[in-house]
Structure formats: structure tokens, C-alpha cells
Nucleic acid binder design. Structure first.
Lengths: 162, 162
DNA sequence: TATTGTTATACTCTATAACTATA
DNA sequence: TATAGTTATAGAGTATAACAATA
């Protein structure tokens, strides 16, 4: 079977099921976050990253990891969060080039407000239908796939795009 | 364990792994489609739906299913595809309200051009790391989740939004 | 010279509502 | 009156490149 042969039915089923499950889940999550806390998924991820960081603060560069594809995109989102009073931005003390982002009390409150409902959505849509070993199995397979993805960049990969 | 209790570590791992796998795959797919055929994922899905439809044609309403969230969004995308000569739109013969969309030869050619690379991306990123029963297992679990998602709409669900 | 982050800009996409036309 | 689809419009988000400041 060559690299470019058509996908067989079983492969198509896996591919489509993965995509649809993920898209439906993301859509439900976005709707909830917006109605429950006026947040987008990206903003929620930013707040959660800060929430889990020591002192509730991170530099822009660290914050960008895995959340956003361009630096200006993060600046834009951080601007919205700052305007909403959920984060603050100050120059990094030991590196004047940097910006240190800190979650505010209001930011922590907002995540606390939103989190229970967020968890409920994930439970209802993704976790509840899992039975027996499903959770462990799913995690095992997806973790292996993720590892492969991270180490197998696109063939044509232009290394730096920014 | 209540509905809104925090997710435990195993649940978080599954949730995050699913999201990251899906996001990385979608990103790789979008990049490929754009560079290989100047198509977005949505446009590709539209062309593939038409390609698999009898006579290469569908009505707008049927085309929208599962691809787009608003009717105007489909009109917009169809407009782009028509301008690129990949589809045509004519009034539906037996229902003058409707629009029948037909894929052109150029549209079929474009999908044929893009498909091998698309398959290669899915193989490289998603399928290749699967071994043994992984494919069957993954499909089984995800299919069950999908079924649940389709039948368990959001609590607050506003039925019609358009 | 490289890195951090912001800004300016242009573009793509989305969604709502108003509208036309047909069933 | 309901349905199919388009259009107008406005807003949100993204990415590129140019920029300023610091390392």
C-alpha cells in the first residue's frame, strides 16, 4: 500500500469520527464559554495557563506556546483580556524587552465562574459515553499519535514563519 | 462524583490529547490544502460532498449539512468556488426556490490534484502511529462518543438560530 | 545582530437581519 | 405562512511586515 493510496473504509471512519467529535466538542465549548463568561476558547486557554503558572504570571512568549500561531495574535487577545480587566501587562523586570502577563483577581474569578460549566460540557459530551477501559485506551492511543505529530513536522516545513 | 466536579488527571489527559491531536491535524490539513490547491478545509469539504453525490450535484440545503453553521456562510463559500470555476449554480428545476450546485470538471480535477497529498497528511500524522488494534479501537470509542454527542444537544439549546 | 513584543494594515471569515421569490 | 437562498453589513480574528527597544 503506497503512501498516497486512498484511505480504506476503516481509516476514513476513524478520521471522520475524530474530526466530528472534536468539532462538535469545540463548538459546544465555545458556546458555553461565551454565554457563561464572555470568553473565547483562546482567551480561556490564556487565563487557564496563567492560573496554573506560579504567581499567576507568564511572559508573552511562554504564553503563546500551543495557544496561538502568531505573536501579533497573542498581543491582540491579551489586549482584549487587559481591557476587560482580567490580566495586567508590565515590562519584565530582568529583561526589559519582555512583557510579563499577570492574571488579576477578576481574571481568577472569571475562570472560577466558568470552570464548572466547562467541565460539565466535557463530561456530558466526551467523558460520559466512555465505559470500562475506554478512557485509558483512548488516552493511550491519542497520546501516541500526539507524540508522533509533534516529532513529524510537515514535509515542506518552512521552519520559521514569523 | 458530581456533574461539575473537577476532571481528574486521566480525564484531563484524554481531553487535552484529543484537542491537541485534532488541532494539529487540522492545522496540517489546512496548510496542505492551501499550498497544494488554494482551498480551505470548508471548500474542500464542499467539493468532496459534491464529488460523492450522484451527478456531482446537491442543493444548497443538503450541502450545508455538517459543513457550515449559517446559510449565508455557505452562500459566501459557494460564491468563492463558483468564481474559481470549481462549481456552478443553477435554479433547481422542480423547486424554483432552490439552488442546485454542480461540481465542474475543473472542480473534479482540483480535488483529484489535492487528494493524494491530503491522504498522505492524514496517514503521516494520524494513521501511521496506530498499531495493532488501535485503528479499530479508536474508531469504536469515537463512534460511540459521536453518537452520544449527536443525541445530547446543549442543555440551553435554542433550537433554531437562523 | 538577534530577540521581544507591538502596531499598522489588509484580508478572510462569520453571523445577523432584511429581503426576494417560490411553495 | 413557511421555506430556500442571497445580500448587506458589521464585527471578530488572523497574519504579514515594518517597527522600536533591549540583549
Amino acid at each position: 500500500m503506497s503512501e498516497t493510496a486512498d484511505l480504506d473504509a476503516a481509516e476514513l471512519n476513524a478520521y471522520f469520527a475524530l474530526m466530528e467529535v472534536c468539532n462538535l466538542l469545540e463548538h459546544a465549548i465555545e458556546q458555553h464559554l461565551r454565554s457563561a463568561g464572555d470568553l473565547t476558547s483562546i482567551q480561556f486557554k490564556i487565563l487557564m495557563s496563567l492560573n496554573n503558572a506560579p504567581g499567576g504570571q507568564l511572559r508573552m512568549t511562554d504564553l503563546a506556546d500551543g495557544i496561538v500561531h502568531s505573536r501579533s495574535g497573542l498581543t491582540y487577545q491579551a489586549g482584549l483580556l487587559a481591557k476587560a480587566g482580567l490580566i495586567t501587562r508590565v515590562p519584565t523586570p530582568d529583561d526589559e524587552r519582555g512583557t510579563t502577563v499577570t492574571i488579576t483577581d477578576a481574571g481568577r474569578q472569571r475562570t472560577a465562574d466558568v470552570l464548572p460549566g466547562h467541565v460539565a460540557v466535557v463530561r456530558r459530551m466526551l467523558l460520559n459515553p466512555l465505559v470500562g477501559d475506554d478512557l485509558a485506551t483512548l488516552t493511550d492511543v491519542l497520546t501516541r499519535v500526539r507524540t508522533q505529530m509533534r516529532t513529524a513536522p510537515p514535509r515542506s516545513a518552512a521552519r520559521r514563519k514569523d
